[in-house]
Measured scan of single mutants.
Amino acid sequence: SSQSQGISSSSTSTMPNSSQSSHSSSGTLSSLETVSTQELYSIPEDQEPEDQEPEEPTPAPWARLWALQDGFANLECVNDNYWFGRDKSCEYCFDEPLLKRTDKYRTYSKKHFRIFREVGPKNSYIAYIEDHSGNGTFVNTELVGKGKRRPLNNNSEIALSLSRNKVFVFFDLTVDDQSVYPKALRDEYIMSKTLGSGACGEVKLAFERKTCKKVAIKIISKRKFAIGSAREADPALNVETEIEILKKLNHPCIIKIKNFFDAEDYYIVLELMEGGELFDKVVGNKRLKEATCKLYFYQMLLAVQYLHENGIIHRDLKPENVLLSSQEEDCLIKITDFGHSKILGETSLMRTLCGTPTYLAPEVLVSVGTAGYNRAVDCWSLGVILFICLSGYPPFSEHRTQVSLKDQITSGKYNFIPEVWAEVSEKALDLVKKLLVVDPKARFTTEEALRHPWLQDEDMKRKFQDLLSEENESTALPQVLAQPSTSRKRPREGEAEGAETTKRPAVCAAVL
C-alpha cells in the first residue's frame, strides 16, 4: 500500500463515540455579560531565545476518518491537505487489492476528492471536503458537486459515486458533537469551532446549510445566566432586550441578528466578523496607526449616533465590543453586545450600574441610586476607546495605585505619557480631550465629534464608502454560481449515467 503517514491498516477498528472529540476555545468574540476587562498594560515583551531549542513535538491529529468498508483504511489527519483517489500521487490511494476487485472500484476517479483545513476566524481551523469526481462525492447523502466544497462537521458520513455507498465517517477532533444542539438549529446550521467564551456562554462559528455562508452563533446558558443575574427581577429580559434591539436596528456599522432560537439555552445567530475584536488588534499591534484609528472611530461614531437617534444607549462600549470585518488594516467595524443597552424612556434617566469599570463615565460612578444619566455615557466610553487606539494603553487603570480607579475617572485625570502622545496629531488629542470631559453637559456629542476637524478627511470617508460598496456587492452575490457537472467518465454501479447527480441539489457548496 502507498498510504501516507497516519493511515492504519485495519478497517475493522472499533469506532469511538463522539464524546472523545476535544474542545477548543479562544478569547471572547462577544459576550452578553460584562466580565473583568482584559488588561492592556500587560503586553508581554519578546522573550530571549533559549540556548537549546526544544524538540519539535509530534503533531496531534486534528481529524480521524473511520473506514466503513473492507479495502479502505482508517486515517489520522495530521497534515493540512489529503487527496483521495486511484492515482498513485494521492496521499490516500485507493490501491488495496481487496478494493480493486470490487465492482465499485471502476466508478472512483483518479482524484476523487480531497479533505483539507484552512485558517478561519480567531486563527481556528475549518475542515472542508472538495469534490473532484465525475460520479460524485456525497456528505450525509447530499451531493457536494464537482469543483465545489463544503465544510465537514463531526460525524459526517462520506459516500463515493452513490449516496448509499458510504466509505468513511469523519471525526473532527477539535469540535463538539452536533447532537448536543437543538434540532431546529441543526436543521438550518452546521455548528463548528468555538470563537470565544464568557461567564454565561460562548460564541460558535457555524455555516448556513442552504448557502454555506459563515455566521456566529452566540449561545447563552439559561442556567448560568439565571445564577449570574439572580438580582434582576427577570434575567430573561436581558436576552430578550438584546434580541428586540438587534432586530430593529439596520446600520452597516451595527451587528445584524439573523436568527434566534429559544431552547434549553438561547441561541442568537449573528453575522460573522472575520477580523475578531478591536481589543485583540490593539494588543497585537501595541497601538494602531492614526489613519486606521480615524477610519475605525468614524464608523463607531456613525453607529452610536444611529443608536442615540433611535433612543438607544449602549452602556457597555469597549474594544471587546467592536468587531472587525476582516484581518486587513482597512476594514469595516461593527458594534455588538447589546445586553446592557437601554431604550430611552421619557425621563432619559437610568440608575442601574452596569458596564465595565474602566470605560464607565464619571456620572455613572457618582450617581448610583441618587440620580440618572443619559446618552453622554456612550460618548465618554468612545473617548476611552479612542485614547486606547491612539496610545496603546488605557487612560484609567486600577494599577495606578496612588489613585483609585473611581477617583481617576470622576476627576477626569487620565494617565498622559508625553513621549507616547508625541507621535499623535494635535487634532486627534483634542478630540480625545473633548470626549473625556467629566461634566456630561459639556462633553462632545456624537454629532459634535463628527464635525471635529480631525474627522474632516475626505480620503478616509471615501475609503469607508468603498468598503461599504464591497460589502454590499459580496452579500448580494449568490453563493453557488454554477451547477454541478453531469458529465460521466465512468458508469455508476447499477444505474444510468447522471441518474442521481442531477436530482440532488449541491447543498452548502461554494464554487472555488
Rank of each mutant, 00 (worst) to 15 (best):
Y267M: 11
N259G: 05
E448D: 08
V269K: 01
S474Q: 07
R375M: 14
V282R: 03
A496K: 10
C379P: 06
L481V: 14
E290F: 04
T502I: 12
G392C: 15
P357C: 12
K281S: 10
P418T: 11
Y296K: 05
E274D: 10
I343R: 01
S348C: 15
L349T: 10
I417P: 03
Y296L: 11
L360I: 09
M273P: 01
L353A: 12
E271G: 08
G383S: 10
D378F: 04
A361E: 03
A371T: 08
L455K: 02
K286Y: 07
L435F: 14
T370I: 13
V511L: 08
T502M: 08
G369A: 11
A303F: 01
K489S: 07
V437A: 12
R287D: 14
L431C: 13
E290T: 09
L246A: 03
E398K: 10
P357F: 15
A422P: 00
R504T: 12
H340F: 04
H399I: 00
I243C: 15
L323I: 02
L288T: 07
E290R: 14
L307T: 01
Y298I: 15
L249I: 12
R462S: 08
T475C: 05
G275Y: 08
N250H: 14
I255P: 05
Y373E: 02
N374Q: 08
C379D: 13
A361W: 01
E500Q: 11
E447R: 08
S411I: 05
T358I: 09
S487C: 05
T336Y: 00
A482V: 06
K286P: 10
A510S: 07
V480G: 06
V366G: 07
V364K: 13
L405G: 01
N259A: 14
K248C: 07
P362Y: 00
Y298H: 11
T356K: 02
E423G: 00
H399F: 06
P505H: 06
N259M: 07
F260W: 12
K289G: 06
F297I: 15
K281P: 06
E495L: 10
P505K: 04
E448K: 14
K342D: 01
G275S: 09
D430L: 14
E426S: 04
P453Q: 08
V269A: 09
I335Q: 01
R451S: 05
V322T: 10
E329V: 09
K256W: 09
Q327L: 05
L436S: 03
V507W: 09
P505Q: 04
G494N: 06
D265L: 07
K463F: 05
V438G: 08
K427G: 15
R375F: 11
F261G: 14
E309K: 09
R462E: 01
R490C: 00
E328V: 07
D378C: 08
